[in-house]
């Protein structure tokens, strides 16, 4: 189905596949530049320039009432790190956990849709993107209902000892699933699952089943066939999916705000509060910048380790 293949290739973000197509040679002229101009100009003004004003803002001193002056106050970065390193670290930790959880959950589903679903393929793909159609805030709020202490999930977890296990791992809020580390991570995982499933699906859909059969023919057990053929060939989807999950999850504060407690505050929440309520612009700007640099460093290391330097 063309519609779905574009959906999934789109979701794949071409983070990795974009460089493969070699555009035909056209006489170099002004046409490509004219095509690029409006969009790139927009990004330059409303993406690049704000990054610079953000940097500049972080180095200023003053207050909203008295105005700000640029003082090259690099000390603010040290202060921000000293004060908020637990939140920064927690954000990365939660996002990484949610990313791994999403990968583990997504792979079987993506594999099933791509290779086994047959005529149910389209229906299953519709169901995968269906949650998108309801505002994610509403859906996240629904988790409050699902995990509430009197709900069936909490009762089931108590009955099976799952609550005790999670409590032992310090993931719960006393004996409640709601307003806990567990709820935040589960919410993050839930929210970004489609971003993991679609790129995985796209790369598994392209996988030629005969390759796996050939591996079997050459004495590979099913597990070895997966390990040496399926998994490496799906790596582009894995990398795209993990990036699409990890990056927004790190900066997210909706889940920690709606499903967490004061012990699960993530850095996005701090930036939001500093900017919009405390009105400490320099500190908030510095934290934003730290978050950005941290993510870019992690992402570029990861992408390089994954063996592809082709961004977009």
């Amino acid at each position: 189905m063309p519609a779905w293949s574009t959906w999934s290739s789109m979701a794949e973000l071409a983070v990795l596949s974009g460089g493969t197509a070699r555009p035909p040679v056209r006489r170099a002229n002004w046409v490509p530049y004219a095509l690029l101009a409006p969009g790139l100009l927009w990004l330059a003004i409303f993406f690049v320039a704000p990054m610079l004003t953000l940097l500049s803002q972080s180095l200023q001193e003053g207050s909203v009432e008295a105005g700000y002056t640029f003082t090259a106050n690099w000390q603010i970065y040290v202060d921000a790190l000293q004060k908020y390193w637990p939140q920064l670290l927690r954000s990365v930790g939660y996002a990484a956990t949610a990313t791994v959880a999403a990968l583990v959950l997504s792979y079987p589903l993506a594999y099933y849709i791509a290779q086994k679903a047959g005529r149910w393929k389209n229906l299953m793909l519709v169901l995968v993107v269906a949650p998108f159609f309801t505002s994610f805030l509403i859906r996240t709020l629904a988790w409050r209902t699902i995990l509430s202490d009197t709900g069936p999930v909490a009762e089931f977890a108590r009955a099976t000892g799952l609550t005790d296990l999670l409590q032992a791992l310090a993931l719960t809020n006393n004996d409640s699933l709601l307003s806990s580390k567990f709820a935040v991570i589960a919410g993050l995982t839930y929210n970004f699952l489609p971003f993991m499933i679609l790129p995985l699906y796209a790369s598994l859909d392209r996988l030629d089943r005969r390759l796996v059969e050939a591996a079997g023919d050459l004495y590979a057990t099913p597990w070895q066939g997966f390990r040496h053929v399926t998994w490496p060939l799906s790596l582009p989807g894995v990398v795209a999916g993990t990036l699409l999950t990890f990056i927004p999850a790190t900066g997210d504060f909706i889940n920690s705000r709606l499903l967490g407690n004061t012990q699960t505050v993530m850095v996005g929440q701090v930036i939001d509060a500093q900017f919009l309520r405390v009105l400490d612009y320099p500190l908030a700007a510095a934290l934003s910048f730290i978050l950005l640099v941290m993510i870019l460093a992690l992402v570029s290391t990861y992408v390089r380790r994954a063996g592809t330097e082709e961004l977009v």
Binding site: L13, V15, L40, L43, A44, F46, F47, V48, A49, P50, M51, T53, L54, S56, Q57, L243, I247, P248, T250, G251, D252, F253, G268, I271, D272, F275, Y281, A284, A285, S288, F289, L291, L292, I295, L296, V299, L311, V312
Partner: peptide
């Protein structure tokens, strides 16, 4: 330039636009 906005957390984009 195309990739960067996708690799930037929303909270950073939102706050930086606010400063601009």
């Amino acid at each position: 330039l195309i990739f960067m906005p996708m690799a930037t957390p929303e909270v950073v984009m939102g706050s930086s636009l606010l400063t601009l």
